[in-house]
Computed example of a mutant assay.
Amino acid sequence: MHTGAFSDIDWDKDGKQVGFFSFPYSIDRSPYYQIKMPVCRIKNGDGPSLVLMAGNHGDEYEGELTLLKAIRLIEATDIRGALTILPAANTPAVMAAKRCSPFDGGNMNRSFPGNPYGGPTQRMAHYIEHEIFPRHEVVLDLHSGGTSMDHLICSLIERSGDGERFARGLELMKAMRLPYGMIADNGPDSPTSMAAALRAGCIALSGEFGGGATATKTTMAVTQRAVDNLLRAVGITDRPILHTDADRGPETIVLSTGGQSLFVYAEREGWFEPAVEIGDNVAAGDVAGWLHDLERPLEAPETLHFQEGGIVLSRRLHTHSQSGDSLLNLARFA
């Protein structure tokens, strides 16, 4: 297999370029096939540098649509420094409307630091971490719950051992002005894009902007406002471009992730009825929901309880569940 990657982007050139990062991957119907990852590079002299990335999971649309709008609207004269936009990072997954790649089953956000000699997802992850991220100061990877999950709208930062970088990241996370902001503790060896950005020397930011593999008027407005706020906070722009409403959003309430005790899992097949909504505050011992069995209509449902208190962060959208499915997840107040 050819392991090279091709790019028609000149990193040092001022102006606006739209092109592809191309990854050769021979398939049955096309021996010389290339996976074409779209990219927009906008540069105007020296200054701050930022990666805006979406489509890490293919069925998360708020970020993908927001970054397409950014590519159309932002010109070099609107910025100072450099902006690299990846609207469909895991392009095969995006085109298949799936969380993971149809070529190799690869979940890009579990594939970093990647492998230049691996399958397509591993090779694209390697290119992003080693060729794209190190050229920038800040990375924002936009996510949502995707097909199977609803998620509290929030920004996200990974805790870093570099105190100065973590403090600046926390400042930028709050500047995005989402209702909530989460501090994650996945560690420097995590296979996620945020850990990859930290390993590349960047400030790593992310966010969850909705769920259900759809985009709504509300989630699109929130996403566009958050990106505008970050562009201004980093110093790349002086004015909103994507979302021109004067309201910059609420003050951010900071949360933290935790261990497995914050999850509620199905331990057998069943049909889940939740007792809570996204954003609800719950206490340890509260009822999380009920797992019904449609094959045994006279059998009482299993009542599920929270092990800890917190705020409801995510909820499984598919009612029919298998053993091992995460039904609900909490975050703690920091």
Rank of each mutant, 00 (worst) to 15 (best):
M1A: 15
A5R: 14
D10W: 11
D10L: 08
D12W: 00
D14S: 09
G15M: 11
K16T: 15
K16S: 13
K16Q: 10
F21E: 15
S26V: 05
S26P: 05
I27P: 05
S30R: 13
Y33I: 12
I35K: 02
N44C: 08
S49N: 13
E60C: 06
Y61A: 11
Y61V: 12
T66E: 04
L67W: 02
L68W: 11
I74D: 01
I79E: 03
R80T: 03
T84H: 09
A88V: 02
A89I: 14
T91F: 04
P92K: 00
A97W: 11
P102C: 04
P102V: 05
D104V: 06
S111Q: 00
Y117Q: 03
G118I: 01
G119H: 00
P120W: 06
R123D: 09
R123Y: 11
M124E: 14
Y127E: 01
E131Q: 13
F133S: 05
R135T: 09
L142F: 08
L152F: 12
I153E: 09
L156D: 02
D162W: 08
G163T: 14
M173P: 00
K174M: 02
G181T: 10
I183D: 09
L198G: 06
C202T: 13
G210P: 05
G212Y: 03
K217H: 03
T219S: 15
A221P: 07
Q224Y: 09
V227N: 13
L230P: 04
R232Y: 12
R232P: 06
D238A: 05
R239T: 14
H243A: 15
D247V: 06
G258E: 00
E267P: 05
E267C: 12
R268L: 11
E273G: 12
E273Y: 10
G279C: 09
D280W: 02
N281Y: 05
A283S: 14
A288I: 07
A288R: 07
L291D: 11
L291Y: 07
L291W: 07
H292I: 03
L294Y: 09
P297F: 13
A300K: 15
L313S: 06
R316V: 01
T319R: 04
G324H: 06
R332K: 12
R332P: 00
